[in-house]
């Protein structure tokens, strides 16, 4: 099964177009994921900063972190604000959980990855007194991507610059993934619709662009077939060179050439070439037929 030029060209453009659409979709989705995570991270960072400032205010009044009993209630309250928050933990400088929305974690150690991230932030924060400056506090949050959660935390520093521990929020990665997956699905459908529409327009466009050349080629092909048919007919009918299809060979374009060519608004150089070729081919065929008739006549005379 062959493939027409129009289809071949249209397919090529469609393939390149699909490559561009795919890459654009990838770029958009990646940016969406990035943006969603960034907005979420900012919100979570703000929440931990707010909690941190409350804790630092009390710390600066001389209360040790592990004695702040109200913290447990505050954490649980914040946890209820957003169902996608998996847990909020307050831990000491060694990573031992002091308070947490999941009480079963209290007394456990935070994961080594959190501890590393916390310590690198705490090192930077060391010597920078925590002023309990509330929502306006300068950012020193850390971010850890756990397999199931986005973890945003910050160190807690007293006004003397001592590292008192840290606080971290675990946000369900599944919630982000769900949103991204739903958006991806929606975009894929939209991309398919746009691609189908554009694919259709591409086919129409290429069809229109190629129409002229296709028409001309078809005209020449018709003339060629007519010429071949004339040759067959001349041979089979026994008319030989007197067959009407060959008789007009000496004319400018030949009967079939005229008949078919007359319909064309413009005769392309290729068509003109074919007419001249056809005329010579008719002449040649006529000569051969004439020769055969002559030879047969000589044979009959004998």
């Amino acid at each position: 099964m062959g493939i027409s030029l129009t289809a071949r060209i249209a397919l090529t453009i469609i393939v390149v177009f699909l490559f561009a659409m795919g890459l654009t979709a990838l770029l958009n989705l990646h940016k969406f994921d990035q943006l969603l995570t960034q907005v979420l991270r900012d919100r979570l960072a703000f929440t931990v900063e707010d909690l941190r400032s409350n804790l630092e205010t009390r710390l600066n009044l001389g209360l040790p972190l592990d004695t702040m009993r109200h913290v447990q209630d505050t954490l649980e309250q914040r946890r209820l604000d957003d169902p996608n928050i998996l847990s909020i933990e307050v831990f000491d400088p060694d990573g031992l959980v002091l308070f947490g929305t999941d009480r079963s974690f209290i007394g456990d150690l935070i994961s080594p990855r959190w501890l590393d991230a916390f310590r690198s932030q705490a090192t930077e924060a060391n010597g920078t007194p925590g002023g309990g400056d509330g929502a306006a506090g300068g950012r020193r949050t850390f971010l850890v991507h756990d397999h199931d959660a986005l973890v945003v935390g910050t160190p807690i520093v007293s006004n003397l610059g001592d590292n008192a521990g840290g606080i971290a929020i675990r946000y369900a990665r599944a919630a982000i993934d769900r949103t991204v997956a739903a958006t991806r699905r929606e975009l894929m459908i939209q991309a398919a619709v746009v691609s189908a529409a554009v694919g259709f327009v591409i086919v129409l466009g290429v069809f229109a662009v190629m129409a002229d050349i296709r028409r001309r080629l078809a005209r020449i092909e018709d003339q060629a077939k007519a010429l071949a048919a004339d040759m067959d007919a001349a041979d089979e009918s026994g008319a030989g060179p007197d067959h009407p299809g060959l008789a007009h060979a000496a004319g400018d374009a030949g009967e079939h050439g005229d008949r078919l060519g007359a319909a064309s608004v413009e005769t392309s150089p290729l068509e003109a070439d074919f007419r001249r070729f056809g005329r010579t081919a008719r002449e040649a065929f006529g000569e051969i037929m004439r020769g055969r008739r002559e030879i047969r006549r000589l044979d009959e005379m004998d």
């Binding site: 062959g2 027409s4 081919a281």
Partner: peptide, 24 residues
């Protein structure tokens, strides 16, 4: 070859004429 290709179809038509002449 390539039955759908318009230019090749033209080529086949050309070949048919030339071969017909050859046969004759």
């Amino acid at each position: 070859g390539g039955h759908g290709d318009e230019v090749k179809q033209l080529g086949r038509a050309y070949n048919a004429i030339v071969r017909r002449l050859g046969d004759a």
